[in-house]
Structure formats: structure tokens, C-alpha cells
Amino acid sequence: MRVFERPKMLKDKVFHYCPGCTHGIVHRLVAEIIEEMEIRERTVGVCPVGCAVLAYDYLDIDMQEASHGRAPAVATGIKRVLPDRVVFTYQGDGDLAAIGMTETVHTAARGEPLTVIFINNAIYGMTNGQMAPTTLLGQRTQTTPYGRNAAKEGYPIKVCEMLATLDGPSYIARVSVGSYKSILNARKVLREAFRRQIEENAYALVEVLSTCPTNWSMKPRDAMDWIENEMQETFPVGIFKE
């Protein structure tokens, strides 16, 4: 009996991601969910600027590239013009929580019926590892070589906790892909975020704690353990709005 198969919705391309980067795991989960929900023909994804900028090369569905941080605005336009489509964005922490924070907050506040997938790897991956709004206190990056210092660089932004105070969103959750069990949970939560849009015409955001072994200067497995052991202290996994 076949218990696992590469989703057909993934194109026959090799991901450009660094070895061990968990962007790929999230791509696969999204592909599996879209296949399972049989929504491939009516789903539109919006790609970010960041390491996932080429996601349209991997997911065999309609996809639109947005300029840096603007994915929720682009997705709003697509959904309003084509309300029968299932529209999701896939954005990094630099994209969603720095340059795109305005779009993020207002799209959530309006309760646009979208699914937002937020890849929090606590760093700007694509541009070689500068501090992100989500960089942990004490974390070394290219721009915080002695570790992020609250007095100088401020505190990490907890996007889920913040957006959960708004009335617009229907579902806000944080998951991790740092272990086998966490990945199974992430799949369930991501599926629910798509279901909210499809069945309840509602806004949902899932923050995924993801690795950047290259810019964290860690081996892939150590990076996964770092999510489970360190990152989750600042960013606890859970459902923030039901």
C-alpha cells in the first residue's frame, strides 16, 4: 500500500532552496492540502519577495507575483474580482511583518476572505541574513552581529498575538515544521485555514516557524531543533483566534 507520494500538484522541478530549508516542507503541505480538498482548478496563490519568490515555479496552479510586502493587497484584488477562487498568500517575515506590515494589518482588519501563510524564519533569508522584525532577542544576524539587543533594535513582533486582537480575522494560528509531530499538526492547521475561506468566506492566517539553516549557520537538523527549543519560547505554537 502506498502511504506517501510526491503530490502531483508539485511541478517536476528541483526546489532552489538551500539543503534542509523547510520552505520546501511547507510547499509540499500546501500542495497536499489543495489536492486533498480538490480545489486545484480554482486556487490562486500570491508569491512574495523573499526566498519563496519562485514558488510559482513549483506549485502547478494559477499564481501571481506581488511586489515586496504587497501580497495581501494583490490577493484582495484577485478575490474581490473573482470571489469564487480560493486565494492564498505565501510570505516571509521580512515581507509580511516589515515592508508589508500595513497591508498585513489592514487586510486582516477588513477580514478579507483570504488564507495567509506566513513563514517566520526570524531572518531575511534571501538577502543574506539581516535582522527581521521577528529576530529573537540575542539572535546574531548580519545586522545584529552581537545579538539583537532590545535597547537598540527593539523587540520581536508577535504577529499572531497582535492580529488576534482585531475583529476581522476568523482564524489565527502558529505552527512549527521543526519536528515530525509538528509537521503533522501544521498540516491540520493549514487545512483549517483553507476551509475557513472556502466554507465561511473568512480571513485566516497561519504563521509557520520555519528554518533558515544557511543564515542561522546551523546544520539542518540543529536548525529544526532550534525552532522547537528556542524559537517557540518567544513564539509559542497555538491557536490565537478560533
Binding site: M1, R2, V3, E5, R6, P7, F15, G24, I25, M224
Partner: peptide
């Protein structure tokens, strides 16, 4: 054992199938 843990954690979906 065919548990598919390896395929679940593979970020490159390089484990393309698991049969049990």
C-alpha cells in the same frame, strides 16, 4: 517499517514514495 517519517521531513520531496 514504512512509517514515512523520512518523507514527511524531507524538504525537497526527494523521497517520492513510500510503500508498506
Amino acid at each position: 517499517s514504512g512509517c514515512a517519517v523520512c518523507a514527511t521531513v524531507c524538504p525537497d520531496v526527494a523521497i517520492t514514495a513510500v510503500d508498506r
